[in-house]
């Protein structure tokens, strides 16, 4: 999905700079560039197209060779069947609650921590920052079992607490990302607010955050996407099927020796839609934030 970005960035250009008045050579060059881009995006889209195609196939055409791109008949019923084969509506509500609360927690805590690391001076700040960064070196798999035992001792197993609460304690990667961005905000702006008697929390909320929305949007989208697609953590901590999320639900189409491909693909398309939607709505911020060029000037 992130790979459809080139298309998004390139499209407006001919409207602005190109046009019929240009000399033929340039036009041809642009045409070739477009052809290459279309070919590349088709390559990138291939798995997604295959997913949609398979999701509409009857049993006997899933493995047909040569492959058929347009199924006959088109089995729209696969979608209803897939959705009904497990309590997917419930899973969707769970996934949404999980992703939204984790996103809120991450943006809140990481921006607070990043503000501290970038704009406040206190003894040991850089050392603490280094310690925080070093936690990125420890792979999640290593801490999985001890973390599970810890949450189990707190009595949090089979609740959403182990999944959501950690997001309120500023993860290293996004804190780092926001800190770099925050450092680009001129100190003069903050000084001015301080002169007017604002406390740091007020400055964080009223000065820093409004100036850095692209970065915050980036963090939000990445976090939402991560939580929405998270498979291992919900699976590890939730024991009640009523608490399961969509990703865990998708796994129900796979078994030890057989996979119901058309249903798995149909459900995957449905699970993918919200993320696609969010990307299209926020893509402007997303791209600005990802390129880290939006520092404040003047």
């Amino acid at each position: 999905m992130a790979l459809s970005r080139p298309e998004v960035q390139v499209r407006p250009r001919p409207l602005r700079t190109g046009g019929p008045r240009r000399v033929g050579g340039l036009k041809l060059g642009r045409l070739l560039a477009f052809a290459a881009l279309v070919a590349l995006s088709l390559m990138v889209l291939y798995p997604a197209l295959w997913m949609v195609s398979t999701s509409l196939k009857p049993d006997a055409q899933v493995f047909a060779y040569p492959p058929r791109w347009i199924p006959d008949p088109v089995m729209w019923g696969n979608y209803a069947k897939a959705w009904a084969s497990a309590p997917f509506t419930r899973y969707a509500v769970n996934s949404l609650l999980y992703a939204v609360s984790v996103t809120f927690g991450t943006v809140l805590s990481c921006s607070l921590a990043a503000y501290g690391f970038s704009k406040l001076r206190f003894p040991g700040r850089d050392f603490l920052f280094l310690v925080m960064l070093s936690t990125m070196m420890i792979p999640g798999l290593v801490t999985m079992v001890p973390q599970y035992v810890l949450f189990s001792k707190l009595g949090w197993i089979n609740t959403y607490l182990p999944l959501v609460v950690p997001s309120f304690f500023a993860g290293a990667f996004f804190t780092f990302l926001l800190r770099q961005y925050f450092m680009g905000v001129p100190n003069e702006l903050l000084e001015a607010a301080r002169m007017d008697g604002a406390n740091e929390l007020w400055i964080w909320g009223r000065v820093m955050l409004p100036l850095t929305t692209p970065a915050l949007a980036t963090v939000a989208i990445f976090t939402f996407d991560g939580a929405w697609n998270d498979y291992v953590n919900p699976l590890l901590y939730l024991n009640d099927e009523r608490l399961y999320t969509l990703q865990v639900g998708l796994a129900s189409f796979r078994s030890a020796n057989d996979t119901q491909w058309q249903l798995l693909m149909a459900a995957s398309v449905l699970v993918l839609l919200p993320v696609l939607l969010i990307f299209f709505v926020f893509q402007k911020y997303f791209i600005e934030g990802a390129s880290l060029t939006g520092s404040v000037k003047g």
């Binding site: 590890l236 129900s252 796979r254 078994s255």
Partner: peptide
């Protein structure tokens, strides 16, 4: 009965046993 996806069942069971809260 609780359904646990095939690929993660050993991991989840191991974690639950370690936490003394197994099925």
């Amino acid at each position: 009965y609780t359904f646990v996806p095939f690929d993660q069942l050993p991991t989840k069971t191991l974690a639950a046993i370690a936490a003394k809260n197994p099925p």
